[in-house]
Amino acid sequence: METFVFSVLNGVTYGLLLFMLSSGLTLIFSMMGVLNFAHASFYMLGAYFAFTIGAATGFWVALFLAPVLVGLIGAAVERWGLRKVHTNGHVAELLFTFGLAYLIEEIVKIVWGKLSIPYKIPPLLDGPAFTLWGTDYPAYRVFMLAVSITMLVALFLLLKKTRAGLIIQAALTHPAMVGHLGHNVPKIFMTVFGIGCGLAGLAGVIGGNYLVTDPSMAYAMGPIVFVVVVIGGMGSLAGAFVASLLIGLLQTFAVAVDATFFDLFGWAGLGAMTEVGRISISSLAPMLPFLLLVLILMIRPRGLMGDREF
């Protein structure tokens, strides 16, 4: 029972962190039709900015300033970079973001060094929130949960309940029509790109001290975010949400399960001491999302909730 409850809690926390990253990516994809390879780099920038700003102002100010700063950089990248490249087609855009990811990583290495930086959880949240069955649940995780849910609700309200959200939604599917109605479509694109990057930055601010802040963090997070977007369905926010939670829970539960291939497939005649029989489920945990990715692309190429094929 306790394993189950903790696995759900941990899985949801990790899943929501993934969603914060993938929501921006999927928004940008549905808008421009291009995968932003540099998306996880904005996540990394968020963590580094929060560390540097936080050293001067404290964590709470950095929590707001760092994502805004990352969002502004994202908007600038769209305005002076992607928009120009856009005229040359999708391949050029893809290569542009690919190069950008490397560029950001090298810049981070030059500015902050190659080592991990001591970006720490604020003292206020450094302790247990509650104790269940003798195991503490860290307060910082509860805080992460709260931030993620707040962001989720805010994003939902922005897109569904405001006039701005209406225009954004329209611009995503019918940019020409929205343009004819007198809205500045390029500006909408720039704003959405900025917001998407800002969300990734926010994920970096709260994820950087919870995990590790080092120049390889973008590379570590990048592939998994793409998996979320593909499984959820390209351009579908709801899909990204479901896929994030699914992957978060899947990875946590896979580690928690104490079984080997033999336990699963012993009935089929697999020996307990054979090479395959001895593989434990928990050792497969990091691989499972990618297995799911391959399966989804084979069986349901548009993803769980996507409306277009990849």
């Binding site: 941990n10 580690v255 990091p286």
Partner: peptide, 14 residues
């Protein structure tokens, strides 16, 4: 590769 060991710790605890 593991960035969050909480699931492992959970397993050890239980």
């Amino acid at each position: 590769k593991v960035k969050d060991f909480t699931p492992y710790i959970q397993k050890i605890a239980s």
